[in-house]
Amino acid sequence: MSAAETILEVEALRKYFPVRNVWKRRIGWLRVLDDVSFSVRRGEILGIVGESGCGKSTLGKTLMGIHTASAGRVIFEGHDIAQLKPHQSRRFREHLQYCYQDPGASLDPRWTIRSSLHEPLVVHTTLPEPEREARVREILRAVGLPETHLDLYPHEISGGQQRRVGLARILTLKPSVVILDEPTSGLDVSVQATILNLLLSLREQFGLTYLFISHDLSVVRMICQRVAVMYLGRVVEIGDTEAIFSAPRHPYTQSLLAAIPRIGGPRVTDSFALEGEPPSPTALPSGCRFRTRCPKAQKRCADEDPVLRADWERQEAACHFAT
């Protein structure tokens, strides 16, 4: 591992949701996150990829404290924040921010951009008004908007500008880690490129660390240094982006990469082989979760749950037969 310091460490994090019947009796658990462990180094962009329902958004929300963890530890800048009450964790979470899919949609339509940008500072800091105003103006310039926009209302600016204001609002508290939840899904390629460039330049400017949750593998490949691949609440493979994309070890990662259309290459639709869809997280298969769709599955996979093996230089995979 490189010498860069670890800023966020996740250890055996679990989030189970109870499944209840009509009479509110618990009849099972929805195991959305099951022993997820990884660490994030300062300044890097860690991509978290997987299909819908694999728990990637729940992971982001559990780190943020929007959901409380069922078990496990989240060590952020030296403090365990997983089990803290909301009021205790506030001073740590100031530096850990969550960015929803469309940050512009979270602006209050009846507030001016100025009020929206001041709010986080009022809540979290005791800065006097002039200093807040200076901070707000600085951030607004950083996201590429003119200061005249401060007095406008969200409906008076375009959707793309709203997104920028949303990002500015997240940055006013000078966070060190930002969790980006599907920041580009639903965008056209040309707009997506603009947003990605903005995210990269902001990271440079403010020394940010990103947790980039996405299902778009080509975007992840472009901007992340490391990637964690999730399947049904588990990290099945984690490592350097280049290592994973050039030599995926886990059969799930291999199928996921094989499914991306590659312009100019052979047609995926002529060769794609993975059958079926992920099973329901309320009724997980025994042993390895991927064995029901895995081309390499054998008896051992049903009996034994594979753990992440660090058998390769820059990546780890949770599969008995990965080579």
Binding site: S190, A193, N197, M222
Partner: peptide, 12 residues
């Protein structure tokens, strides 16, 4: 503007 490793990210 498609993401590709060679050219970087370019918008319109």
């Amino acid at each position: 503007s498609l993401p590709s490793s060679e050219a970087g990210i370019r918008g319109i």
